[in-house]
């Protein structure tokens, strides 16, 4: 059930200004109210997005948690990649690495296709 409580904490934090206030001012006390392992507490306190991802936190919850801390999108994605390298595959939940060429290469391929299509029309 521990993953459930990690996600519950982040879910409440993402949507509730009162929980957010407590997160800022009395984090240790707040964390005692959830059934968390030492590793999960460490991941939350260190803002270790990669570890939270590997633990199995749903990306939609994690994305909002990251946004709450003003982390830019590319940095968020990179943190997850580093988490996979450091801690191994996602342990639980619906998220798994499936393999992807990356946005830059994908954009380039799409641009080339558009150019070819446009050339074909002229």
């Amino acid at each position: 059930m521990s993953l459930y409580y990690v996600q519950k904490l982040l879910y409440q934090l993402n949507r509730d200004p009162h929980v957010r206030k407590r997160y800022d001012s009395e984090l240790d006390e707040l964390l005692t109210e959830y059934d968390l392992t030492a590793e999960e507490i460490q991941a939350i306190k260190a803002l270790d997005l990669g570890l939270l991802y590997v633990i199995g936190v749903n990306g939609q919850i994690l994305m909002h948690f990251s946004a709450l801390h003003g982390i830019a999108w590319p940095d968020y994605i990179e943190a997850l990649r580093q988490g996979l390298k450091k801690y191994g595959p996602v342990r639980e939940g619906v998220y798994a690495e499936t393999g992807y060429q990356g946005i830059a290469a994908h954009d380039e391929a799409l641009r080339a296709r558009r150019a070819a299509t446009s050339q074909g029309k002229t």
Binding site: Y53, G59, Q60, L62, M63, Y76, I77, L80, R81, L84, Y95, E97, T98, G99, Y100, G102, I103, H106
Partner: peptide, 10 residues
């Protein structure tokens, strides 16, 4: 595959 390292895959 949003909010994952595979974000962008379509």
């Amino acid at each position: 595959w949003p909010a994952t390292p595979d974000s962008g895959k379509i």
